[in-house]
């Protein structure tokens, strides 16, 4: 009897609609966030993360309505990331029904913001998203650094030190994405995941690279992550979350079935 390892489907949202082709059977409007969230809920998703890729502040208000709509019908934890820069942004999302927000670049430009956010709303709802890339040459000790702007801009910040700093500032979880692995379908960067997970006490959500079910178990067993986040493996109907959990259970991992 213990805490289950979590599976979190991640959905990209633009202007209040789920984007990035999602191919559920029997869903006529694939872009309807409530339908998509409900389907994942039915399949046994432990949480749902929405990543807001909306370009303008004006359009972001539609994301708020979307969160409201989803939260009134789907009763599992909801995280919203993307464009969270101020305490007011967080308040707006939480009032709309989000349970957590993911802070990414704003943490880098102003680490004090993480502390401010945790003081105001509690650590339980502050997830710090870290996008990391390996920067060490071959044959040298591993080093990963934080990148911004979808992996294009380097910051020179060491990923492990950064995760520790975020923990000290009060972050409740770390959403760790390997920019080297993201989109490759080759599995998580397990060395990175393990290095970060073993260096902090707060949970790490592994992200970036899931292409098949065994990758999820690897993230937990080898990467020491508490949760795994994936998108395309679920979106395109390749696997259901139920199947993913059954596969994890077969590996001896405790899951909520």
């Amino acid at each position: 009897m213990s805490l289950a390892k979590r599976i979190i489907p991640c959905l990209d949202v633009d202007n209040g609609r789920v984007v990035k082709g999602i191919q559920f059977v029997n869903i006529r409007d694939a872009g309807n966030p409530v339908e998509v969230a409900k389907r994942y809920d039915e399949q046994g998703a432990d949480e749902i993360t929405f990543l807001d890729i909306t370009a303008t502040a004006h359009d972001r208000s539609t994301t708020v309505h979307m969160v409201e709509e989803v939260a009134s019908q789907v009763f599992i934890p909801l995280t919203v990331g993307g464009g969270i820069r101020t305490v007011e942004d967080i308040r707006t999302m939480l009032n709309a029904g989000a349970d957590k927000v993911a802070i990414n670049s704003a943490a880098i430009f102003n680490p004090g913001f993480v502390q401010e956010a945790c003081d105001a709303f509690g650590s339980q709802c502050i997830v710090v998203a870290i996008d990391a890339k390996k920067t060490s040459p071959k044959d040298e000790a591993n080093r990963w650094e934080i990148f911004t702007h979808g992996g294009r801009k380097e910051t020179g910040i060491d990923a492990i030190e950064w995760a520790q700093k975020m923990e000290t500032l009060g972050a409740g979880e770390i959403l760790l994405t390997s920019m080297d692995k993201d989109g490759t379908k080759n599995g998580f960067d397990l060395e990175l995941t393990q290095a970060v997970a073993d260096s902090i006490k707060i949970p790490v959500i592994a992200s970036g690279g899931v292409g098949k079910l065994e990758h999820l178990s690897d993230g937990i067993l080898k990467g020491h992550a508490e949760a795994t986040l994936a998108a395309s493996i679920f979106h395109f109907g390749q696997h259901t979350i139920q199947e993913a959990k059954e596969a994890m259970q077969a590996q001896g991992i405790e899951v909520r079935l």
């Binding site: 289950a4 339980q124 949970p203 508490e226 949760a227």
Partner: peptide, 14 residues
């Protein structure tokens, strides 16, 4: 322990 605090996620209630 590898257990994390906060205790966050789905756990059983006996």
């Amino acid at each position: 322990t590898s257990l994390k605090v906060p205790h966050m996620g789905w756990n059983q209630i006996q």
